[in-house]
Nucleic acid binder design. Structure first.
Length: 173
DNA sequence: TCCGTATTGAACT
DNA sequence: AGTTCAATACGGA
């Protein structure tokens, strides 16, 4: 577990998200309370205000941008600016995440298309895995990635969240 | 090295 | 039209 990260809450109409920052940028973003999002085995842990009590101005600035961007997306608008992202992952995963960020709001892509975009057309399932490993949902729109034939596909731990997010963007089934 | 996976497309009821 | 199945790439144990 990453106890070196600074955790800050973001209140939204859909609940309180929790953002975690490293020294380099936004490292993780969690869905409200326990469910959905990442398999962090720490759902029981209360979010602390900050690491040592002091939140660096640098991080406060990022947090403001993050909160704004998050609310924008939940509001069905494209965020103008994003905080620096500090995602830990393999080269493959970063490629996938990078591709996902290129999906404009309100549009969708299939896992197959993502796989093709990173030059590995056959790696469709692996792409799914990378999506599940995405530490920063919403901002990196893993929810905009559907299965082929416009099927909903899956969403680790909280399929209802995927649905809700898509609905916010005007995508129906 | 084996297992699970947020897939896919083709073959079979 | 719904369901089953094998193939395939990658990460984790």
């Amino acid at each position: 577990m990453k106890t070196d990260l600074v955790a800050l809450p973001i209140a939204t109409a859909d609940g309180e998200f929790i953002a975690r920052y490293s020294e380099k940028g936004l490292a993780e973003l969690n869905f409200p309370n326990g469910r959905a999002g990442l398999p962090l085995g720490q759902s029981a842990q209360q979010h602390r205000p900050a690491k040592g009590g002091v939140v660096p101005a640098k991080i406060r600035g990022w947090h403001r941008v993050t909160a704004k961007a998050l609310k924008a997306v939940l509001d069905g608008r494209e965020p103008k600016t994003l905080p620096p992202l500090d995602m830990a992952g393999t080269a493959f995963q970063k490629s996938v995440w990078n591709q996902m960020q290129k999906i404009s709001l309100g549009k969708t892509k299939s896992y197959g298309e993502i796989a093709l975009a990173i030059g590995k057309p056959k790696a469709v399932r692996a792409v799914g895995g990378a999506c599940g490993a995405n530490p920063v949902p919403v901002l990196v729109p893993c929810h905009r990635v559907l299965a082929a034939n416009n099927k909903l596909g899956g969403f680790g731990g909280g399929l209802d969240w995927k649905r809700r997010l898509l609905k916010h963007e005007g995508i129906e089934f």
